[in-house]
């Protein structure tokens, strides 16, 4: 199996505080990898290092086969990112957002038009194409943001709590999009709070106090911790946490 993310003892320190401690993991192509942890456990820090938004204090990592220190340009071309905060331009229309983000990833205008139309059709946004993104409901915005994040067909897409604040039905629809992308060979690296979402992941890791405490498939984890649901597994691990918000 092709490895697309490989980290070795990746660490981020802020003074004496170790936000992420010696994280070593491998993620395979086309996998949906869940990255779990309580608030303040360090998952956003770890993810920001992988995206190139934050420089690690020590350790190494390869994204899509490129070194995160030396080949940042190559890394950037091969990843997509969707942050916690909703991150399209609300004062631009659906199509304008698509054109803009396609444009800054260097897609040609013909390519953008084709992909944009396919995307709008897939999301059923035909009648909203010329509406400002700000006027769409949150669930649609998030689905659109995800589709825009993978518009340039990256090898990996990082999703930082992508489904915050929406109802379970919309979350389910969002995950349908994620599965579709994974089927096309895009690796999904997703952080989440929701334990039902954890069940949707192929494999997942659970971070506690900056360390990765567990890493396996959901069923293997449940077996290991003699739990019936991911909720219990998470509770079992997070109970010993010293840091919390």
């Amino acid at each position: 199996m092709e490895t697309v993310i490989k980290t070795h003892e990746l660490t981020k320190r802020y003074g004496d505080f170790i936000a992420a401690n010696a994280i070593s993991l491998e993620v395979y192509k086309g996998e949906i990898f869940g990255f779990l942890g309580a608030n303040g456990a360090g998952k956003t820090t770890a993810m920001r290092m992988l995206c190139g938004l934050s420089t690690p204090s020590s350790g190494s990592a390869e994204i899509a086969g490129y070194d995160i220190y030396r080949q940042t340009e190559q890394v950037k071309k091969n990843i997509g990112y969707m942050s916690q905060k909703f991150s399209l331009y609300e004062d631009l229309t659906v199509m304008e957002n698509i054109r803009f983000f396609g444009g800054i990833y260097g897609l040609g205008s013909k390519d953008i038009r084709l992909k944009g139309q396919a995307l709008i059709k897939q999301l059923g946004l035909e009648s909203e194409e010329k509406k400002l993104v700000g006027s769409l409901p949150l669930g649609w915005k998030q689905k659109l943001a995800f589709s825009v994040a993978i518009l340039h067909s990256p090898k990996i897409v990082f999703l930082d709590e992508p489904t915050g604040g929406v109802d379970p039905l919309t979350r389910r629809q969002f995950w349908d999009l994620i599965y579709e992308a994974a089927d096309r060979g895009i690796t999904i690296f997703v952080t989440t709070h929701y334990m039902d979402e954890a069940e949707y992941c192929g494999r997942l890791s659970i971070m506690v106090d900056g360390n990765v405490k567990a890493l396996d498939t959901p069923s293997a984890l449940k077996e290991q911790y003699h739990a019936t649901s991911m909720d219990d597994v998470f509770y079992e691990l997070a109970r010993g946490a010293k840091r919390s918000e």
């Binding site: 190139g52 938004l53 990112y81 942050s83 916690q84 905060k85 983000f101």
Partner: peptide, 13 residues
């Protein structure tokens, strides 16, 4: 504030 800066910084722009 809106978080779009992060997206820009992750991009090759």
């Amino acid at each position: 504030e809106t978080g779009t800066m992060e997206i820009l910084l992750v991009s090759p722009f």
